[in-house]
C-alpha cells in the first residue's frame, strides 16, 4: 500500500501498490479521486464527476 493525501480534504488515502493510472477511488470525504503518475510515483488528483448515461 502507498499512503497518499486527498487533494480535497488533506486526509490519508491508502492506494494499492499496483494501482494503474486512470483508476478512480472515492475517499471517505466524498471526493472522487483519480490515480496518476507524477515524477514516476503514484499521485492523486480530483477525478471527473460521475457521468450520466441514457437507458438501461
Amino acid at each position: 500500500m502507498v499512503l497518499l493525501k486527498c487533494p480535497v480534504c488533506g486526509g490519508d488515502v491508502q492506494v494499492d501498490d499496483n494501482a494503474l493510472p486512470g483508476e478512480v477511488i472515492e475517499h471517505e470525504c466524498g471526493a472522487l479521486l483519480e490515480v496518476y503518475m507524477k515524477d514516476g510515483k503514484l499521485a492523486l488528483r480530483v477525478a471527473e464527476q460521475i457521468g450520466e448515461d441514457w437507458g438501461e
Binding site: 494503474l20 493510472p21 486512470g22 483508476e23 478512480v24 472522487l32 471527473e48 460521475i50 457521468g51 450520466e52 448515461d53 441514457w54 437507458g55 438501461e56
Partner: peptide
C-alpha cells in the same frame, strides 16, 4: 485501462 481505454463511472437514467 489495460486495453488502452479511460474508464469512467456512470449512473443510468433507466
Amino acid at each position: 485501462i489495460s486495453l488502452g481505454l479511460k474508464p469512467s463511472p456512470v449512473r443510468k437514467w433507466g
